[in-house]
Amino acid sequence: MSAETLLKVEGLGKSFGGVMAVSNVDFELKRGDFLGVIGPNGAGKTTLVNLITGFVKPSRGKVIFNGKDITGRKPYDIANMGVARTFQMVRLFHNMPAYKNLIIPLCSQRVRKLRGGKYGERDDVAIDLLDDMGFERTSNVPYKTAGSLPHGYLKRLDLARALALRPDLLILDELFSGMSMAEVAGVLPIIEKLNTQGLTTIMIEHRLRELFRVVDRVMVLNFGVKIAEGSPDQVMDSDEVKKAYLGVDVEIPRGKPA
């Protein structure tokens, strides 16, 4: 793994009216890193994602991706540069068959460039990708309307839509929310595998046990401010984090389970 810096966030801040949703956040990601972002509700985690992906314009600070300043660029430009995201509340095309949802990113400039101008067989690429996500190609699940699928499938479809872009950086905004234990157990290995293959990932999550199993590093936000960063164990030992996030008396999951 090369130690090249992929993403650099400097003094990033956003205020909505008088409220600082995110203030003065700095962090750096090297290629292949897996960063977890945690924090209580309203800590500014989703705003941070929106700031990096261009859905919200920062009030101050800089986002540098792959050596280029992408601060305030349009979401589709940033996506074409290789930043893909999922949404906390899945954003899908509910009237289309599930596999057709993936045709949209496959039509993007980025994928066209990566595939060397090969236009055809988008449907096949979509079905392959869905098969990897557990939509068995022999069943009729990939062909069902997205709106008729159960929640766990929708979350995986959202993940597949992000991956179809062949991103360099994947940002997962509470992918596991609303998923059953069994569904999480199905998706977690997929994400682990992607990361071992070298995909840089930021994962925002409330389910700490699962998060700590996969990430190398955790960043903690509270009221828009970064209050800690380090390995899961380091972060969980910090008194400030205990106070802000977990409450002092809560038993804390530690390290990667055997």
Partner: peptide, 24 residues
């Protein structure tokens, strides 16, 4: 066609289309 599919997707959810790298 795939071109039309992108148009219909914009009607469905334009933010999702933007995050898929398409200039809506």
């Amino acid at each position: 066609s795939d071109y039309g599919l992108v148009l219909k997707a914009i009607a469905d959810d334009d933010r999702a289309v933007m995050s898929a790298g398409i200039n809506i």
